[in-house]
Measured scan of single mutants.
Amino acid sequence: MTEYKLVVVGAGGVGKSALTIQLIQNHFVDEYDPTIEDSYRKQVVIDGETCLLDILDTAGQEEYSAMRDQYMRTGEGFLCVFAINNTKSFEDIHHYREQIKRVKDSEDVPMVLVGNKCDLPSRTVDTKQAQDLARSYGIPFIETSAKTRQGVDDAFYTLVREIRKHKEKMSKDGKKKKKKSKTKCVIM
């Protein structure tokens, strides 16, 4: 069974824990209790493949930012979460993405942009803004509501699919490099 290491990042209060708990335990946590770091595991079937999701729910508070490099190193894919009623959390996505790329030393890291709290009427981040940002990053965008469960499975499952595509691409690139290195030079 394939294991996928997913990391949920975003500013404090955007609903990272609520999304994760909704996926794992099928219930909505409405009281806000700032996370330092929590880890969850769940076995699911995605596109006919049974897999184990190892999900790291991270601290959004700035005082825990020193811990970010460590979990970013171990993560295979990242859910970059903002709240649709919090423009600052949307603007912060850029910083999370840049930090992930720096730590992973790669421009090509599996990510999904997630606009959470889409059940709320007080939207300050337009869907088109988020779609445009995701398009500019070359990553999928999904709106979710941890409260109603809308888009929750889709967000995590899409990230797994992005990781699969990335692994497939990397193995193809690896095979191309191996083929090239088999060419021999004969000096007579």
Results as ranks from 00 to 15, higher is better:
Thr20Val: 09
Glu3Phe: 07
Tyr40Glu: 05
Leu19Met: 14
Val29Ala: 11
Asp33Glu: 07
Leu6Met: 13
Gln43His: 07
Glu62Arg: 06
Val14Ala: 13
Tyr4Ser: 10
Leu53Thr: 10
Gly13Arg: 09
Val8Gly: 04
Gly10Trp: 00
Gly12Leu: 05
Val45Phe: 05
Leu19Asn: 13
Ala11Thr: 09
Val7Phe: 15
Ala11Arg: 06
Glu37Ser: 03
Tyr4Ala: 09
Val7Cys: 10
Tyr32Arg: 01
Lys42Arg: 13
Leu6Glu: 00
Lys42Asn: 09
Leu56Thr: 05
Ile21Met: 14
Val14Lys: 08
Gln25Thr: 13
Glu62Thr: 10
Lys5His: 11
Gly15Asn: 01
Ser39Thr: 07
Tyr64Lys: 04
Lys16Ile: 02
Gly60Glu: 08
Glu37Thr: 02
Ala18Leu: 00
Lys42Asp: 05
Ala59Glu: 05
Gln22Tyr: 03
Ser39Gln: 07
Glu49Ala: 10
Pro34Asn: 00
Thr2Trp: 07
Ile55Lys: 01
Lys5Pro: 14
Gln43Pro: 06
Val9Ser: 06
Gly48Leu: 05
Tyr32Leu: 04
Lys42Thr: 07
Gln43Asn: 07
Asn26Cys: 14
Gln61His: 13
Glu62Asn: 14
Gln22Arg: 07
Cys51His: 07
Asp38Tyr: 07
Val45Asn: 11
Gln61Trp: 15
Ala11Gly: 09
Ala59Arg: 01
Gly10Phe: 00
Gln61Ser: 14
Ile55Val: 12
Phe28Leu: 03
Glu62His: 11
Glu63Tyr: 05
Tyr40Gly: 06
Val44Glu: 03
Gln25His: 13
Tyr40Thr: 03
Val44Trp: 12
Gly12Gln: 04
Gly60Met: 08
Ile46Ala: 08
Gly10Lys: 00
His27Glu: 12
Asp30Phe: 10
Lys16His: 01
Ala18Gln: 07
Gln61Ile: 14
Tyr32Ser: 03
Thr2Cys: 13
Asp54Pro: 02
Ser39Cys: 12
Leu19Trp: 04
Gly13Thr: 12
Tyr64Cys: 15
Ile46Cys: 06
Asp57Gly: 02
Val14Asp: 13
Ala11Glu: 14
Ile36Val: 02
Ala11Asn: 10
Gly15Arg: 01
Gln61Leu: 14
Val7Pro: 02
Ala59Trp: 07
Ile36Thr: 00
Ser17Asn: 02
Gln61Arg: 03
Thr50Asp: 04
Val44Tyr: 05
Glu49Pro: 07
Thr20Leu: 14
Asp38His: 04
Ser17Phe: 01
His27Pro: 01
His27Lys: 13
Leu56Pro: 02
Gly15Thr: 00
Leu23Gly: 15
Asp30Val: 09
Leu52Thr: 12
Arg41Tyr: 06
Val7Tyr: 12
Val44Gln: 10
Lys42Val: 10
Glu37His: 03
Ile24Trp: 12
Glu31Asn: 09
Gly15Trp: 00
Asp54Lys: 03
Asp38Arg: 01
Thr2Pro: 08
Pro34Cys: 06
Ala11Cys: 14
Leu19Lys: 11
Leu52Cys: 10
Thr35Lys: 00
Thr20Pro: 08
Ile24Cys: 13
Val29His: 13
Lys42Met: 15
Lys5Gln: 10
Gly60Leu: 06
Glu3Val: 08
Leu53Phe: 11
Leu23Gln: 15
Lys16Cys: 05
Glu31Phe: 06
Gly10Cys: 02
Leu6His: 02
Asp30Asn: 13
Thr35Met: 01
Ile24Lys: 05
Gly12Trp: 05
Ile24Pro: 00
Glu49His: 10
Asp47Tyr: 06
Val44Pro: 04
Tyr4Phe: 14
Lys42Cys: 11
Asp38Thr: 03
Ile21Trp: 11
Tyr4Gly: 08
Glu63Gln: 04
Pro34Phe: 14
Lys16Val: 01
Pro34Asp: 03
Glu37Met: 02
Glu31Thr: 09
Leu56Ile: 05
Leu53Cys: 11
Tyr40His: 10
Val45His: 09
Glu49Asn: 09
Asp47Thr: 06
His27Trp: 15
Gly60Tyr: 07
Ser39Gly: 15
Ile46Val: 09
Val9Gly: 05
Asp54Glu: 13
Asp30Trp: 10
Ile46Gln: 10
Tyr40Val: 06
Thr2Ser: 13
Gly15His: 00
Val9Thr: 04
Leu56Trp: 14
Thr58Asp: 02
Glu37Gly: 02
Gly12His: 08
Ser17His: 01
Gly13Ile: 14
Asp30Lys: 09
Ile55Ala: 10
Val8Met: 11
Ile55Gly: 02
Ile21Phe: 13
Asp54Phe: 01
Thr20Arg: 03
Ala11Val: 10
Asp33His: 14
Arg41Ala: 08
Ile46His: 07
Glu3Asp: 12
Thr58Asn: 04
Pro34Gln: 03
Glu62Tyr: 07
Glu63Met: 04
Glu37Arg: 00
Ser17Gln: 00
Lys5Gly: 11
Thr20Asn: 15
Ala59Gln: 15
Val7Gly: 09
Asp47Val: 03
Leu19Asp: 13
Asp54Ile: 03
Glu49Ser: 12
Ile24His: 09
Val45Ile: 11
Val9Asp: 06
Ile21Lys: 15
Ala59Asn: 15
Thr20Glu: 14
Ile46Asp: 11
Asn26Leu: 12
Gln22Leu: 03
Val7Asp: 01
Ser17Thr: 14
Thr35Tyr: 03
Asp54His: 05
Leu6Lys: 00
Lys16Leu: 02
Thr20Ser: 14
Thr2Ala: 12
Glu37Asp: 08
Leu52Lys: 12
Glu62Asp: 14
